[in-house]
């Protein structure tokens, strides 16, 4: 996984409906890591009925079709597809909220 804190490359948003239980996020992010797909941003929240909706900001490159097919194979993923109407500025606002860190947390190697 690669995160860009400054210039976000043009990307596309994948929308997923997934099981809401521990381990689902690991299944999805692990897939990106081991298949060498880039993952630029994640938004996720519960939508009721033991389900979560997830937006993944990914590069719109030659790997996109393969990413979608691999995600669709995961047992905990009910649906996955490109979401052309997604409000990508959400990720920009997320970026603004996260950069620089506002809480001044101190514990950890980077403190």
């Amino acid at each position: 996984m690669q995160t860009e804190s400054t210039a976000r490359p043009a990307g596309t948003v994948l929308e997923l409906l997934v099981n809401n239980h521990p381990g689902v996020m690991a299944h999805i992010t692990g897939l990106f890591a081991r298949r060498a797909f880039n993952l630029e941003g994640i938004l996720c929240g519960p939508v009721g009925g033991d389900h979560s909706r997830m937006w993944l900001l990914v590069n719109d490159d030659g790997k996109l079709e393969q990413i979608v097919k691999q995600l669709a194979k995961l047992h905990d993923v009910f649906s996955v597809g490109e979401c052309p109407g997604a409000d990508v500025t959400l990720f920009d606002r997320l970026e603004a909220a996260l950069h620089p860190g506002k809480c001044g947390v101190k514990t950890g190697r980077g403190a």
């Binding site: 521990p22 381990g23 690991a26 692990g30 081991r34 995961l74």
Partner: peptide
């Protein structure tokens, strides 16, 4: 075990 087998299984359960 769940984490270790995640990338090498079709699916896994704890």
């Amino acid at each position: 075990t769940y984490g270790l087998t995640l990338p090498i299984t079709k699916h896994n359960f704890l």
